[in-house]
Design a protein around this nucleic acid. Structure first.
Lengths: 342, 342
DNA sequence: ATAAATAAGTTAACCGGTTAACAAAGAACC
DNA sequence: GGTTCTTTGTTAACCGGTTAACTTATTTAT
């Protein structure tokens, strides 16, 4: 590893001059001749600036820490990937890199602590909430990240009172899909949720109950499934449910993956979609476009949420101290998996 | 941001002692009593070790740089995500974090250079190859990363002569799917490739030609499509191709996404899969399991490749200097999208 | 011709931790 | 009682870059 000193030695100047030039190529404190010599030495010695040394001095690392409290492998989840994608794209265009920390812990809170442990030095953080986080844990995690004193945004988190920047997706807790099915005349519904105990699931379920009440449709627990966002679990559960309850005409799923599984489950139990049964997904991920029939779904604008979070963070990094709350609404994407009964 | 000095001051000892304890809690150079005091101060002052300062001293950052030469948003690609997932999971369990650098450049080579520019200080690198990389660029990129002197692994890269560690997927360049279709009696084939010019696509195409020759099947360019790994592009191209060439009975796709699109295209042109037309995918991603009929596909074991790469890197980080080449074979996963004509 | 401004560069302290080398006090040993 | 070993620390240099303050030589202005 060549250092700034070696460059300086080769050119025959002081390390300071090299640093001055390298951190601002337009400086007029280094002559054109010397600049050229430095450039040459940089190439010859294959010099790359040590970010760590540099950050240590400048107190700026151009690195954002990503805190995702999950025990599942990363990069395997639709929601998170879309969010990350939007985030990365935007941050990257402002010169910021992303940092993912290791963690061997098992609980949401311990993971966050462990990841923060190794992260001091980042310019800011993005805190995700996942299907593993309970209400209580979300608050603790926000508090923990807050203690770093660095700017941060929370993402994919149910609305929270704390005075922190957050990008909220209005429809995250809204059973908009179910409402649409009801509006299309369906009353015999199946609701496929994520992970039992997770805050996302709980909030959605709460509002679903309220929705049924509003329409005077009875709520029955056996019509609520916990598919755990997994295609296998949801396929099995839905297949069983459809067999046990042939009167079902509409399935509202909390994710497109589970909705795609629902299509398969419908086929497995001899039903055609949407003729015999209507299915609605959520997220408008690629699965919605690929499945046959293509899924009617709620676009949660996850990618936009990611870039929105990046914007908020960028503002804070820029010195803005006010916490921002960005509210995104989901939108219905009508495709071919829902039939109106009216 | 509290520092080690503040801890030291509060406890009334030298910063060195704090550092000694904090970098090895089992040390016997600090008394139990002092240890407790330090722990207390750490909690009270909410101290987190500055990784950068620490790495600077120890020349170890526990951070791996991920170099992905693409201009597309990250985390939106099946292949890459599976690879990253395997990589992250394994590296994480050994305490390594992942670093993604920003880049605004447009060419594969410039991106790699720019990302390396900001990365000195990582303990090692993972170099991806993408559909954007030509043969020439892949070599240049390897050379560029090699110049850092840090251990690195190449991933998702067609076999390369250089003496560098690489995880190879044997089937990356093999038209195993096409061979299977032919073995099932299909001779009127459509090949759906990725991006024209990309090395992955080129290698596969070359070997596909050879395969047809081997079986005495004529090769015709209009039966080769460049779907660009995109569901829309491939859907349009395949729909058109099926309309123009009704004799086609088998479609071999370079990705599951394109295969899923092929199913939709088949439906759009009035064909049933696999009755009228057989379709085979590649990667065994979630799309293969979700589509209806479920896709017969080639499992490339991407996730395993990722963790394999992590292992190789871990070895190198551990001091092993020999470059390793890990060879993974793809395996056929038979589902419901291919019908035997024999 | 002289003062003031500019150009080009240097010195040295600092960022926050780490670690080799050293030190002082008490315990253990002969 | 003197020597050696432990225990529990400290000092100071260093990692690689940055930057305020300073210096010297050269222009420019008056």
């Amino acid at each position: 590893m060549s250092s700034i000193k070696e460059i300086a030695k080769q050119v025959g100047i002081s390390p300071a001059s090299v640093s001055i030039y390298l951190s601002n190529k337009e400086t007029n404190r280094v002559s054109a001749k010397t600049k050229a010599l430095i450039d040459q030495a940089v190439t010859e010695l294959n010099y790359h600036k040590n970010v760590f040394a540099s950050s240590l001095s400048t107190h700026e690392s151009k690195l954002i820490g990503v805190i995702i409290p999950t025990i599942l492998p990363l990069f395997q989840n639709d929601y998170t990937n879309a969010l990350l994608s939007g985030l990365q794209t935007r941050l990257s265009s402002f010169g910021y890199g992303l940092l993912f920390f290791p963690s061997s812990a098992q609980s949401s809170i311990a993971i966050v602590k462990e990841q923060l442990e190794k992260s001091a030095g980042c310019d800011g953080y993005v805190l995700f909430s996942t299907g593993f986080c309970t209400h209580e844990q979300i608050h603790r995690n926000i508090e923990e990240v807050g203690k770093t004193g660095k700017p941060f945004v929370t993402l994919n988190i149910p609305k929270v009172d704390e005075d922190v920047s957050q990008v909220l997706i209005d429809d995250l807790a809204q059973p908009s899909g179910a409402r649409y099915l009801i509006d299309c005349g369906h009353t015999e519904l199946l609701l496929v949720l994520g992970r039992q105990g997770g805050e996302h699931t709980r909030a959605l379920q709460r509002n679903y109950k309220r929705l049924l009440q509003e329409y005077g449709i009875p709520y029955s627990p056996e019509r609520v499934l916990y598919g755990e966002y997994s295609e296998e679990t949801s396929y099995t559960l839905i297949t069983n449910a459809l067999t046990a309850m042939p009167q079902i005409t509409g399935i509202c799923c909390m994710s497109d993956i589970m909705a795609a599984s629902a299509i398969r489950a419908a086929a497995a139990t001899g039903r055609a979609v949407p003729r015999d049964i209507s299915i609605i997904g959520r997220n408008d991920s690629i699965h919605a476009r690929l499945s046959l029939p293509a899924l009617t779904t709620i676009d949660l604008h996850m990618q936009q949420a990611g870039s929105g979070a990046a914007n908020v963070l960028l503002d804070a990094l820029d010195g803005s101290t006010a916490s921002q709350k960005i509210l995104l609404s989901g939108s219905l994407v009508e495709r071919d998996s829902v039939r109106s009964l009216l």
